[in-house]
Every structure is written in C-alpha cells, then in structure tokens.
Simulated assay, not measured.
Amino acid sequence: MAKSLQELSDRLEIQDLLVDYSYAVDRREWAALDEVFTADAKIDLTATGGVSGELATIKRFLAGTQRHFAASQHLVAASKIELAGDTASGRTMCHNPLVFKGGEVMFVGLWYIDRFVRTEKGWRIAERAQELAFFHNAPAEVVSRASRSE
C-alpha cells in the first residue's frame, strides 16, 4: 500500500531520532539527549544491566558507565515503526560493540522498544525499554546485573 507524504516524513523523523540517540551516546553528548526524549520520558535500561528512571537519571548513568570505554558504536537497524496519528511504537535492533580502555571489546545485541510522541518540537521518545538478545565477552558483573532484571 502506498504511504502518504506525512507518513513518510514521520517515519524519517523517527528514524533520525533513533540515530540521534546513537550519536549522542557514542559521542558522549549528554545534553543532546534532551532533543531525543520528552522531558518526562520513562527509560528502562535494566535488560542490559543498567538503570531505570527519568532522563536525568539515565544521563548520569550513561556518563558514569561510558567513561569505562574508549569507544562505542550503537548501530541501529531494522526498525519496525507503527504510526498512530501523533503517537507511534517501535522495535529497533541495536548492535553495540563497546571497547574497554584496555582494548578488549564487549558486544551487546538488543532491541529498543519505544513509544514515540509528536511534540511541538517534533517527534520524541516518551518511553524506552530494552530487550536483550545477547552479550559476548561481557564481564560477569554486567551479565549478573542484567539477569537480575529478568
């Protein structure tokens, strides 16, 4: 079925939002996340051993954990977006290699489960959760934290 110009535009804006999140985290530009999430977003990163909370909590957590890594790349792909007017839901694959400062690489495979809303400033993520697919070469404490969230 043909998609309307509005639907195509909405999908591209949401896809850009997913990429903007990846760039913000990988570049450690925490303030940029304010343009990705709503001010009252609910974010749950516990499936990969992280925390759950509002945006300020998530930004502090990410800043604290990312300092252990020399580099990271959040590759997002295969998004399944369901539009419903000014809201949308999505499931997006993420492959995330994280390079420890010593050079060892940990791989995390996950899906982001998102609820998006259209705001006066454009589309934003209002809710985000993770669904873990796999860890490879992860420290035991990371795997332990993630398994406690199940």
Rank of each mutant, 00 (worst) to 15 (best):
D44E: 06
D44N: 05
L45C: 07
L45H: 08
L45G: 01
T46G: 15
T48H: 09
T48F: 08
T48S: 04
G49N: 07
G50P: 09
G50V: 08
V51G: 15
V51I: 05
S52E: 12
E54R: 11
E54T: 08
E54C: 11
L55N: 02
L55M: 06
L55W: 01
T57N: 05
I58M: 08
R60N: 14
F61V: 05
F61D: 14
L62R: 11
A63K: 11
A63I: 09
G64N: 14
T65M: 06
T65A: 03
Q66G: 11
R67Q: 05
R67V: 15
R67D: 02
R67I: 13
F69P: 01
F69C: 14
F69Q: 07
A70Q: 15
A71T: 08
S72R: 05
S72C: 10
S72V: 15
Q73G: 08
Q73T: 05
Q73P: 06
H74I: 10
L75V: 10
A78H: 07
A78V: 03
S79N: 13
S79K: 02
K80P: 03
E82T: 11
L83E: 00
R91P: 07
M93I: 05
M93F: 15
M93P: 08
M93Q: 12
C94S: 12
C94L: 11
C94R: 01
H95N: 13
P97T: 02
F100D: 02
F100G: 01
F100N: 10
F100C: 15
G103L: 09
E104P: 09
V105D: 01
V108H: 01
G109M: 04
G109C: 06
L110M: 10
L110S: 13
W111Y: 13
Y112W: 05
Y112Q: 12
Y112V: 00
Y112S: 01
I113L: 12
I113F: 03
D114R: 00
D114Y: 00
D114M: 02
R115V: 01
R115P: 00
F116P: 00
V117Q: 02
V117W: 00
R118E: 06
R118V: 06
R118H: 10
R118F: 07
E120R: 10
K121V: 12
K121H: 12
K121I: 05
A126V: 14
A126F: 01
A126D: 14
E127Y: 01
A129D: 14
Q130M: 05
E131V: 04
E131S: 09
A133E: 11
A133G: 07
